[in-house]
Amino acid sequence: MVDSEVLDEQAVEAADASHSAKVGDHQPGSTGISNQKLAMWAFLGSECLLFGGLISGYLLYRNNNQDGPAAAEIFDIPFTSVSSFVLLMSSLTMVLALSAITRGDHPRTRLWILTTALLGAVFIGGQVYEFTSFYREGLGYTTSPFSSAFFTLTGFHGVHVSMGIVMLMSLYFSSVRGKLKTENAETVEIVGLYWHFVDVVWIFIFTVVYLMAKGI
């Protein structure tokens, strides 16, 4: 779980450090780290089990395509490679946004946030295209355990990306309205954590679902 020894030391240090605190000035974080970030990381830890379950369901059924198309037949690797690349690069633009806001460079923050959202949208567009063309080629949601598991896994991921886009856009508009200040850099960082997490999930999916379909 957590390394309690370290925590303990930190708590003691935090206690020492805040000796001068006034009455009623409450403990500002026994571990000295931010509540919000800790919460996000706890949530991401939990998400590992969510995606782990979805991926396991897929692995279990990947070869069970009944009469429908099989994974290796239907995947369009060049196309998916491009959209994977797009998502990967959106992680870069995301950190650039964070780095811009920590510098207090708000125009550039907005630029990078918008680029990130846009790249995310391109990825989603690609997924919509992919799903429709699979459907036309005979891979419906109910075709086989493989198809159900595939669409569920990648669909869940797509929903995560879309929620990330919504968060990015609200960051963007707050920034436009001057509400996203330099001291709110942590908010950008937290949205970024979520975004990168969604990206690493795709790194996993791209390899295990798409690229490995060929070999087995």
Partner: peptide, 21 residues
């Protein structure tokens, strides 16, 4: 208003008052 309201808190550095940013 734009941030997750709870997220508006600065990093809770022990001294409490300063934003890490």
């Amino acid at each position: 208003p734009d941030t997750d309201p709870e997220a508006a808190a600065a990093l809770d550095a022990p001294e409490g008052a300063d934003d890490v940013a």
